[in-house]
Design a protein around this nucleic acid. Structure first.
Lengths: 182, 182
DNA sequence: CATGAGTGTTTAGTATTATTGACGATATGG
DNA sequence: CCATATCGTCAATAATACTAAACACTCATG
């Protein structure tokens, strides 16, 4: 996602009913700088941006995480969800087409016998899920557990992990990961 | 949270096995700058930091949000999930106790007749969900739709929204929002 | 009309950041 | 042991962020 620091700052400032001078006073910078930053004539140093956000107040994390977009579909019928699985593991991705998504929401189906494989998955971010139907054996790091309906998991995705359905009925999970990996 | 830009950058760079020069090449800056930034001798401009993170790669949001913790439980049985609902709307929160979570994963139950209310909800971030059982009427902005099992939604949370279960059977949803609001 | 207090923008000068190129340290291979 | 390569740091210079002060504009108020 490409972000427009100036526009975002201006929006936030106005949202809080502050003038450039008032924010400048609170932040300990000059009003001129705020003008320049908001017009994208300069790219503020992190330390300056931090000062500015302290005056709002807002954290750098929030500032860069915040989304201020736009108009994409809200609702998704089953066949409007992008399907990316195979016959064993089926993934239906919610809001696949949405640009600048901050997370990936999936409906996952594991057929009996399905297995995401020996060489364990490992990527960035965090993921979690809730088992909706059936049972799944989940290994995260050195821990393994059999999860049933209503049970859940949550872990940083850099831990190696593996899903196996050793049961006789298909297993269905709703899961989410951030940042979006698909 | 007070962050140490230099330390964090160095950690990330080393985590990815990159030398200052290699990262410099990828980011389109000089190795000297990386050295100075990592020693906190300068506060990089946002544009420079962006370049550096592009070379990792990592978003500014992730960089400032980044959690680099820790050891918390991975699996959650039903009664290990924090419950925060009332009799109409029941929310079970996955990994509630986890510090620095980047998203909130919920199992929601709406009793027949449940309604999140006239004055519509509106907060920051994004949220999405999948209907697991029953039906729910969801209004987002000016759009309203009745969602059934397998159907889903995803929208920026600053749009006002409202959930109503007008049916006779309870409705169950697995939802996720980021950044975490609970 | 003034006049004054508010707004955001601009400009010239100063402070800080970023580049360039050289340095010492460490490691590898001939 | 000397060459060669790669590492992070540093000093001097170039580029850019930031400040201070003035400007132009709008809106109230007398």
């Amino acid at each position: 996602m490409i972000i427009d620091v100036g526009k975002r700052l201006r929006m936030l400032r106005q949202l809080h009913g502050l003038s450039q001078r008032e924010l400048a006073r609170r932040a300990g910078v000059t009003n001129g700088l705020i003008s320049l930053v908001e017009m994208n004539r300069v790219s503020p140093s992190v330390s300056s941006l931090k000062k500015l956000l302290d005056g709002i107040p807002m954290s750098l994390a929030e500032f860069f995480t915040g989304d201020f977009n736009q108009r994409t579909p809200v609702f998704y019928a089953e066949d409007e969800m992008l399907e990316i699985g195979n016959e064993e593991v089926s993934l239906r991705l919610v809001a696949a087409q949405r640009v600048g998504r901050q997370m990936t929401l999936l409906r996952e189906r594991y057929a009996p016998g399905a297995d995401t494989g020996e060489e364990m998955l490992a990527h960035k971010g965090e993921e979690g899920g809730v088992v909706v139907r059936g049972r799944i054996e989940l290994t995260v790091g050195k821990e393994t557990r059999l999860l049933g309906p209503g049970e859940s998991y949550y872990f940083p995705s850099n831990l190696p992990h593996r899903f196996r359905n050793q049961g006789r009925e298909p297993c269905e999970i709703v899961s989410c990961c951030t940042p979006p990996t698909f």
